[in-house]
Design a protein around this nucleic acid. Structure first.
Lengths: 223, 223
DNA sequence: GTCATAGTCATCGTATACGATTTCGTACTC
DNA sequence: GAGTACGAAATCGTATACGATGACTATGAC
């Protein structure tokens, strides 16, 4: 019963465990947006007292994954369309920067790996599986920005992705047509990196890639 | 004795009070970088128990204002030169974005206000006071980015400034020569906004303005 | 029938208490 | 005299307990 909790327990600090466990459940969708996070319940599930859970929730709040209201409680942060827009815009900026900073540090092996992932995505277009596609999409971009030498920026990128992760299948479920373009843009981006394009060009391309996804979503919902 | 704490007490939640109080003391320099934040001591100063203080520290940790080590304690986050570099670079990116997004929403009154602040800075160049100059500098940039319609980006900008605030007098104390150029760049930036330059141009200008400050600092320390 | 009010329940907020861990000082040995 | 081991003090980590707050429900008056 408490197995799932035990599985995460490595760190030692219960506060840390609680943080990891709750975050995992939010990201993997067990706790979907709007879900009411009752401290005592979570504490019981994890086999700890409420104090470490409170701290964990507080940290998640600071990251924007949960919202908190005094004397009322915490809920998993929603996917309010406006919020989605803000998050995507922010991510386009920080991810663009991370990718351009990361690019010159990428080796041939990294590019090959990214390309392999992208080809997998292309295959995936046939019998389209939004969830798998989204996971591959994240893998692809991870390869691109993970070498970013500035840990602050990298952290911001991760936070942005986590925010979006609560959407489970992301935009591609709503705008399947976008997936095809996305794969092509990935290849373009890889070519730019490969040929050592200047930082500004890469940054713009990465930023536009994400903006295009956002635009596709907006066009879809507006009609 | 507990007057300072009481003065902040408006919010109601002790956790919130503790957060505000500690943050204020870090930003205003009472707790300087490296200062050891002992939970029990802070709790006593504020007239609360340690639990709310822990939560406050946790939030400050998530914001990067304090560092925390398990079973050891919290210290005010340092100004390690590397960290300074990362923070400035990150800020150049998010502040550039915030400024460019904010620009089209600024009215003539806002621009006039910014220009007034900048003229004050120019006056300040005579009998140079780094602390005052830095405060004016923040005021100036606040006017520029405060209209940013994306709250996430705005939040990131604020966090960046808070990080730097622990340096009290900022770069200008170390590189006084930079102050003069800075004022000129401010005027250039205002002209761009006034004439409705496109977003990309404004973003680049704002970003470069900050990068130049960073470069001046690096040149100074390297020699 | 609807609105206001009182009372109860669920949940949060904080204090206190105690066990766990680290750090530092001291004494002992080689 | 230097290094190591032991022990005490300081501090953190977590559990438990209780008071406070907000949401919900039922009852009564108009």
């Amino acid at each position: 019963m408490a197995e799932t909790a035990t599985a995460v327990a490595g760190t030692g600090s219960k506060s840390e465990q609680a943080y990891a466990a709750v975050k995992a459940r939010i990201v993997d969708g067990t706790y979907s947006p709007g879900y009411r996070l009752v401290l005592a319940k979570i504490a019981e599930d994890l086999g700890v007292s409420v104090v470490p859970v409170r701290e964990a929730i507080r940290r998640l709040e600071a990251e924007g994954l949960v919202t908190f209201e005094r004397n009322v409680g915490a809920t998993v942060a929603g996917i309010d369309p406006t919020e989605y827009l803000y998050t995507m815009q922010t991510l386009s900026i920080v991810e663009g920067a991370a990718t351009s900073l990361s690019a010159p540090l990428m080796g041939a092996a990294d590019i090959a790996r990214a390309r392999a992932v992208n080809e997998e995505m292309r295959d995936c277009l046939q019998h389209f599986d939004p969830v798998r596609f989204t996971r591959l999409n994240q893998d692809f971009h991870s390869v691109l920005f993970e070498h970013c030498p500035n840990p602050h920026i990298l952290d911001l990128v991760h936070r942005g992705w986590n925010r979006l992760a609560s959407l489970r299948s992301s935009t591609f479920r709503f705008v399947p047509g976008r997936a095809h373009d996305s794969v092509d843009e990935h290849e373009t981006l890889l070519k730019l990196i490969e040929t050592g394009a200047d930082a500004d060009t890469i940054e713009k391309a990465a930023r536009l890639h994400r903006s295009a996804t956002l635009d596709a979503y907006l066009a879809q919902t507006k009609q």
